[in-house]
Design a protein around this nucleic acid. Sequence first.
RNA 1: GGAGAUAUAGCUCAGCUGGGAGAGCAUUCGCUUGACGUGCGAAAGGUCAUGGGUUCGAGUCCCCUUGUCUCCACCA
Length: 886
Amino acid sequence: MYKELAKTYDPKDIEEKLYEKWMNKKYFHAEVDWSRKPFTIVIPPPNITGQLHMGHALDNTMQDILVRFKRMQGYNTLWQPGTDHASIATEVKIIEKLKEEGIDKDELGREGFLKRAWEWKKEYGGRIIEQLKKLGSSCDWDRERFTMDEGCSKAVTEVFLRLHKKKMIYKGSRIINWCPICRTSISDAEVVYEEQAGHFWHIKYPVVGTDEFLEFATTRPETMLGDTAVAVHPEDERYAHLVGKSVMLPFVNREIPIIADSYVDREFGMGVVKITPAHDPNDFEVGRRHNLPEINIMNDDATINENGGKFCGMDRYAARKQIVKELDEMGLLVRIEDYSHNVGTHDRCHTTIEPMIKQQWFVKMDELIKPAIKAVKEKEIKLVPERYESTYFNWTDNIRDWCISRQLWWGHRIPAYYCDKCGEIVVAKEMPKVCPSCGCEHFTQDPDTLDTWFSSALWPFSTLGWPDETEDLKYFYPTDVLVTGYDIIFFWVIRMIFSGYEQMGEKPFRTVLFHGLVRDSQGRKMSKSLGNGIDPLKIIEQYGADALRFTLITGNAPGNDMRFYMERVEASRNFANKVWNASRFIMMNLERADGSEASGDSLTDADKWILSKVNTLVKDVTENMEKFELGIAAQKIYDFIWEEFCDWYIEMVKPRLYRDVDETKGAAIWTLKTVLTTALKLLHPYMPFITEEIFCTLKELESKGEEEESIMISSWPEYQESLSFAAEEEAVETIKQAVKSIRGVRSGMNVPPSRKAAVIVVSAQDRIREIFEGSRVFFSTLAAASEVTIQADKTGIAQDAVSAVIPGATLYMPLSDLVDIEKEIARLNKERDRLTGEIKRSQGMLSNENFVKKAPAAKIKEEEEKLAKYTNMMNQVLEQLKHLGC
RNA sequence: GGAGAUAUAGCUCAGCUGGGAGAGCAUUCGCUUGACGUGCGAAAGGUCAUGGGUUCGAGUCCCCUUGUCUCCACCA
């Protein structure tokens, strides 16, 4: 029956094997079953370009914990997996690859490019999925989806058509963020601002018809080529006489008006702003207010176009240099100031954004966002932690229309078709046959594709079959929890929420659980450029997935960033090893039960104590997990297993097991198994592999039936009132205190563990003596006791025996040969001082009239009990000191 | 400019609705204790950033100040 298990736990042996087993058994798979309650999580779809990083590892560990927890609780659990086509990220990657092969994207053409992209997806798109499996993720892989698969694409077209019909999608000429390297527009959310050292160029334009000049400052002199006005504040007296006049724009020799607009800050710079409507978002607004011409001076690659006169063909920075130089020569450059300012860059390639006016497609946000605001405000959707609500509202309150067209090839092509003859726009699922306007039969589809987030916004329902009214959709939607990092609230979370309400008429999920960033040990973001990233797969390889998962989930509060330390991984690995060895111990001793599998009646105080403890643990862990306090729950399991179960209970049980005859042996083994099984179940969501391995080995040893063939589909433990044993808990706590005191005294006296000593327990209280009577057997292993004598008074105790005082009892150890009486007295004096302090504190509180009057009765009682306890201990210490002649 | 987070033991961080400060790692001492040295036992180490306030009572709630971080806005 005894099974030989390795002395140290080696995850490599089992992880792959168990994952395969789970897959084969279809434990991850969910089917609609109206007799059971569903629990659904949709995965934040990783990019097909992605490699598993620590952020993914954390995100997916959290999801897996929730899913495994709910599955064990009996929910019909679906974790919907899939990947995102990641339009721009992927396109950039493929362009790079083509470049290596010497192929130019434009030469290859759209079709050829897409063919290559799909090939790439086929080859690498599944890589991250395989990596998620190594983590232990229990996704329903039978349902794996891709944002560009047929169903999701259908959903995208459907939404586009619907919104267009409701006039919530429109095409318009707006100022957008243009990336000259990627040659596409990007949304506001994709712009990151970087502080850059630049200059403030003070320039002056001659005022027409006078000999005056108007001076202003700019950080971007090259945009002057597109200036169509100069603005001052309407109430600025310095320039009041100039409003209505005009200035002459150098180089292009355009006469432009001096206008008044309150957008100008009188205090800043010269209080004069040059207005370039085509290349600055604020100027654009001003321009529209004043009906100014919008002159685009740049090509898509940010070189100056024909509107820039002689600078045509120059790069924007080269032009800047040249323009400054020539202005200086013309005497129009007043001075140059150093100036550090924020520059918008593209979050993918960090190229400085060029604001440009372009025809683009937009989603109108004002109406769409309303239900999304309401939902969070009214807690229809809960954000955890709650503080992310302010971030959420910050965005929703300042929302601008969403630019959804991208000048890319990889993605969902915009379902808009232009009549070749009259230019009529038809938005339709397929290319129309005849132009409704002119009858022409030739159309060209809009070349642009949609923002990646347009399709991921639909993810919670597109993956379940929408727009078809599938059973899956009816059953699994709305989903329960969305787990994600706070960094994509704007990109994704908000957009899913308004899309859910708009398309489904219902929230996409009930709770959003945010986590923070995983940083390196110095608190820096893990990044490729710094080279400080830690590869989760390497950690798994070296320490096991369980250790990695446990590390990621413990030691920080929800939503906070965390630092990743190898020392913490080691600690988690050590914990896994601890669990392994505790189990090994139990399995090694199963045979000692010699058939006496008794439970109930023969349970000792210690058994009841640990059963009671694990019962409380069940409650605490379940409650915390329900509150999404995964780290607290994990910590409680850890503490219980290591301290209570291993360090105390197992040590207490040893003498019972090793004795030839012990009528409580069966009860001990039964308790060991019961508590272990319960603890393993609680731990399973966190450490799925090791718990499964032990659980199954244990079942195998017992050759029990198939009723619980895997821990992952076993039932979650429940708190039982009948397993709460207050008296036994108190009894064992007394014993623990006694043991600790003895250890403390021995250690203080430098008594080696090999030197056993008799322990004489003296207590006037029947109850205390009874407790010790029932527990004397523990003292041999726990406190190096040779024998334990229990008596009501001090009869027969050697004068120089060392003593340890606990509430209600004094413990004596005759160790005269080793004991230094002076030291013993010093120790007792220290104890006396400590108790004096405690008593003083307690008395102080109790003699405080306000405390007695206002504090709750329970608190007062508690304090009175403490006082009694310390007074009792004090008397024992004083007596002992007196005994030693002090 | 606006918002949020954070300041607790040498390091990294917990500390739920206010009622005697905790963990992991590191440190010191002891241990071939019939599961585990990836271990066991004992210990040392904190005026909980500063200053106020509320309260019988504040690490915990409120305000001020200071430091650090993040997000948003983007005044040319």
